[in-house]
Amino acid sequence: MLHSVQGIVIRSMDYGEGNKIIRLFTPELGKVGVMARGAKKLKSKHGAVTQLFTYGDFVFYKQRGQMGSLNGAEIIDAHHALREDLYKSAYASYLAEMTDRMLGDEEGNNYIFEQLKAGLMAIEEDKDMQIVTHLYEMKMFDLAGYLPITDACVSCGETTGITSFSPNMGGTLCSRCRFKDASTIPIGEGAHKLLRLFPRMDMRRLGSVQVKDETKEQLKRCMRTYMDVHIGVQWKSRGFIEQMEKYNI
């Protein structure tokens, strides 16, 4: 069956001497594996469209249960800047890797597609990459059914006096309940405000946000620990980001 869809390249790998296999994320078909024959060759018409993060119109033939075969493609946004900057490439790769590993094959999701598209654009436009990442992580938690409780204390339901975040218990804790988890992460008012906001925020409406370093550090601990506890995936791209942070690259 011939498909004509918009898609984003979330994975691209060499195959054989001159071919590439790409994984597209599309709003209608979800993740789709497509063979781009001859894409590695110097004069190939498919060379540019198979680059990671490319957003474009793709035409491919695919039978049920088989890999697709690329017939043609037109670039809408090549996202060159995401591949040319080390930091942007690392954070954009994390968004793409989450999409690739947390969505099922051929599982269409127009909302997540729009969030990914907006997230890549936000990184390219120099919006805070850490905030973009946390916002997308929250979308992934929601998709997987692991959205943390951030509007109230996960233990008693109290909506005031929130002082910490418990990945193990699945959300925020008030000052009276924080003793229930010895590994709870202390958070300030700024971090709690953003944790409440992330589940409801649309990436397409994200403006230029200014977040204190202390707040960002709290958010990072909360989101990464929550991801490790509930999703349990060894993220290659996040590992690279952590190495850059460790050595101040």
Rank of each mutant, 00 (worst) to 15 (best):
S4Q: 13
I8M: 07
R11H: 13
M13Q: 06
Y15M: 12
N19I: 10
K20L: 07
R23C: 10
T26Q: 01
E28S: 12
K31Y: 03
K31P: 02
V32G: 10
G33L: 05
A36Y: 04
A39K: 01
K41N: 08
L42V: 11
L42S: 13
L42I: 11
L42P: 04
K43S: 03
K45W: 06
T54L: 03
T54K: 02
G56E: 10
Q63S: 11
Q66D: 00
M67E: 02
G68E: 03
S69L: 14
E74I: 04
I75E: 09
I76K: 05
H79V: 06
H80A: 09
A81I: 09
R83Q: 10
E84P: 02
K88I: 04
A90I: 02
Y94I: 05
M98T: 00
T99Q: 03
N109G: 07
N110W: 12
N110C: 13
E114P: 05
L116W: 00
L120E: 01
A122N: 10
I123S: 05
D128T: 00
Q130Y: 12
Y136F: 15
F141L: 10
F141S: 09
F141T: 10
L143W: 00
A144N: 07
L147C: 09
T150H: 10
V154N: 05
G157D: 05
T159Y: 03
T159G: 04
G161W: 07
I162W: 01
I162Y: 03
S164T: 10
P167Y: 00
N168S: 12
T172K: 10
L173Q: 07
D181S: 05
T184D: 13
A191T: 03
L194E: 02
R196V: 10
R205E: 12
L206F: 06
V209E: 05
Q210S: 15
Q210L: 15
Q210A: 15
K212D: 15
D213E: 15
E217C: 07
C222R: 02
D228E: 14
I231K: 05
G232Q: 08
Q234F: 06
S237T: 13
R238Y: 11
G239S: 15
I241N: 09
Q243M: 15
